[in-house]
């Protein structure tokens, strides 16, 4: 019995030691992805960036770009759901190769992981009537402001301590308030503002120039020092140059970071 147990123990320890020795060598992410024949992309369900469509397939602005990128690398694209709070651990432990999920490229996060070229941006802007006298943040503070309740715009209104705030149920209602004259200013997403203001029904409105709140840029997250970054940046810029990204942005209503993509 004793001998058997000693044998078992030896085997257990031996296996543990072997596991320790079989390091998956090389630091090249590109090589790893090619060896595994798949690009693993970590996401959360976050429309319009990443979501599962009626056919059970991943769709969304980010998901479609990720699939194209994998195709360009000549490997399969595996999109996996991760816990957002653990994205850095997921990357560093090589469970995923990229975080591609409308991720805000913040300074704090930049200390842990690398970012691709920023491909999209989000910010809150002020929409007013085309003939409005409002041109500055100070004037907006004391004006009648419409925001969507619970939105980033509502946060801006609270942070800026705006005096008269009308919370409405949708961003489009906020613009309608301005159009109807019941509010002076609507604080909404730049993505939405750019797609509707100044056109059709909303031709009589404009975005206040030079005023925006809470600028956020979206980027793809990579492991620090990953050699996938050069490939990814080239890919994003090329897809912008040939119009693919612009078409996707229109389809999914995403505000592109055109300066970064064109640079």
């Amino acid at each position: 019995m004793k001998k058997i147990l000693a044998l078992i123990l030896t085997v257990v320890l031996g296996v543990a030691a072997c596991m320790g020795l079989t390091a998956c060598g090389g630091d090249s992410d590109l090589q790893r992805v090619k060896d595994n024949n798949k690009l693993v992309v970590g996401v959360t369900v976050y429309p319009p960036m990443d979501y599962v469509d009626d056919q059970g397939e991943w769709a969304g602005f980010d998901a479609e770009l990720a699939k194209m990128f994998a195709e360009e690398l000549g490997v399969n694209c595996q999109i996996v759901i991760i816990t957002w709070a653990q994205k850095v651990a997921e990357l560093n432990s090589k469970q995923i190769d990229l975080v591609w999920n409308g991720m805000t490229a913040s300074e704090e996060l930049g200390a842990q992981i690398d970012f691709s070229v920023s491909y999209a941006k989000n910010a809150q802007v002020a929409v007013v009537k085309a003939d409005s006298a409002i041109t500055s943040k100070d004037q907006i503070k004391t004006a009648k402001v419409a925001v969507e309740a619970g939105s980033a715009g509502a946060d801006v209104a609270a942070d800026e301590a705006m005096t008269t705030v009308n919370p409405v149920t949708a961003q489009v209602d906020a613009i309608n308030e301005v159009k109807a004259g019941t509010s002076d200013v609507a604080i909404i997403d730049i993505t939405m503002a750019q797609s509707v203001v100044g056109k059709g029904e909303y031709a009589g409105l404009k975005i206040v120039e030079g005023v925006s709140y809470g600028d956020e840029i979206f980027a793809v997250g990579l492991r620090k020092g990953s050699d996938l970054k050069a490939k990814l940046d080239t890919f994003l810029k090329a897809k912008y140059a040939d119009g693919t990204i612009t078409a996707l942005a229109l389809e999914y209503g995403v505000g592109l970071n055109t300066e970064a993509l064109a640079g």
């Binding site: 596991m19 320790g20 390091a23 651990a89 560093n92 432990s93 090589k94």
Partner: peptide, 16 residues
């Protein structure tokens, strides 16, 4: 669970 899932990769040992 956290240690078993993330640590091997973080230490460059192996990936599940």
């Amino acid at each position: 669970i956290f240690v078993i899932f993330y640590l091997p990769g973080l230490l460059n040992l192996f990936v599940w």
